[in-house]
Design a protein around this nucleic acid. Structure first.
Lengths: 238, 238
DNA sequence: CAGTGGTCTAGACCACTAC
DNA sequence: TAGTGGTCTAGACCACTGC
């Protein structure tokens, strides 16, 4: 049995406050010490309960600021190449994009291998963060083969990068390979999304392949409670 | 800064023991109290460090038994309908399947909606767990429309269910829609995989659609450190 | 039965945020 | 500066596993 333990019952109380709407989506929970006092438990129990609900995706925290009720997840088909902005509009949600950096740098080993470059080669790297309804939920890091994307860094990098690749550079006939795994954010990534190091996230990597060569390697990190992927299949006879 | 905190340094020590091979893949870590003693820290620190590494997918725990080094993840393309067994063989890993239950039951609301059944309708439900190299890592729950799968429950349900659907029931021309999200295991699920309630997992749902109707709705829960999804795209001109 | 992880107490100080 | 979450101590008992 469980549910008899202290922190489970604390979690259950908070959960029912959330479901009843007493704690609205996006709103701030009482402070940890406040919860201790109201429910007569030690702080360890309050925190264990909060961690438990965080794992469920029911609440999230902003580093050193507090705990908040998670909004409904954003729904997203990673195999589609629509701009995210269109998706957001369709779901009636507010999407913001902020450019964090756009540099020419030495390629990390993994990237160099993917892009079939020497270990000392330079690549173009664009890093952005994106918010849904005011919450930073997505960190994108995109690596481009330098020779295939002249002048990339001087273009407008706050819009759809996909559209740039397709329209400005003319890469239309292409394939996209995708990887999905569950990885927490490292210190740098966490800071950029204002969360704690180790926050659970869904890692999505996309390799853009043209003429059998990978020319763009992208990585997206989505806060785990903020995203739900949905892939519509194709009819096959297999 | 971090890395100066006690539990970060404990985590770093364990991590280097793992990377150096001193703690081999699959092997058991020292007990929590053992770690406390060896490194001169309190148990909270030891546990915080272990939780941190668990989130990274570097270690996992069996409920009340101990902490273990996570093996390399299994790689898996959910859009393919190969049997998992073939995939496992290709990756040189040992896959086992165990039937947990096969029943005719009332359809849960979500399932009834998907299968376009009335709220009181019955469905066929098959639940299995699967292990990779001896570790239970996957829980499958599969719901079938009763009228489309006569005699299903009397068939051999320990092999490829996909092959059954395709060959024994002849559903060849079909579409598969997929959903992926990050959800922890509930109490029942956790028990079946011998892990703790709330263990982080990747939830994969697959709807099999034939002639525009969903006839099979499956849910898979993979322990988050045991799986990496890889989807090979198709060349498009879009 | 010994040892493990799971839960829990009642405090403490620190780093940081918001005012 | 007051209050927050983040880290930490030094214990404790319980439920369960493995012998």
């Amino acid at each position: 049995m469980n549910s008899l333990t202290t922190y489970h019952s604390v979690a259950a109380r908070l959960q029912s406050s959330i479901h009843s709407g007493e704690l609205a989506s996006g709103s701030k929970l009482p402070s940890e010490r406040g919860i201790c006092e109201q429910l007569g438990v030690s702080r360890v129990n309050a925190r264990d309960a909060l961690h438990f609900l965080e794992a469920q995706g029911l609440i999230y925290r902003l580093n050193r600021i507090g705990w908040f009720v998670s909004p409904a997840p954003f729904i997203y088909d990673p195999t589609q190449t629509h701009s995210l902005r269109d998706e957001a509009r369709a779901q009636n949600r507010q999407l913001e994009t902020e450019l964090i950096s756009a540099n020419r740098t030495a390629a990390p080993a993994v990237i160099a291998r993917k892009l079939e470059l020497s270990a000392t080669a330079a690549v173009l790297n664009v890093v952005r963060r994106r918010s849904v309804d005011g919450r930073w939920v997505l960190l994108e890091s995109c690596y481009y083969r330098e020779e295939d994307f002249p002048d990339l860094l001087s273009k407008d990098l706050t819009g759809s990068l996909n559209a740039l690749v397709r329209d400005a550079y003319g890469f239309k006939k292409r394939r996209q390979d995708i990887g999905i795994s569950s990885k927490p954010l490292n210190q740098t990534q966490a800071q950029q999304l204002q969360v704690r190091e180790g926050s659970p996230a869904l890692k999505l990597s996309r390799d853009l392949i043209v003429d059998g060569r990978c020319i763009v390697a992208e990585t997206e990190h989505w806060l785990h409670d903020a995203i739900e992927m949905s892939i519509r299949g194709r009819t096959t006879a297999g």
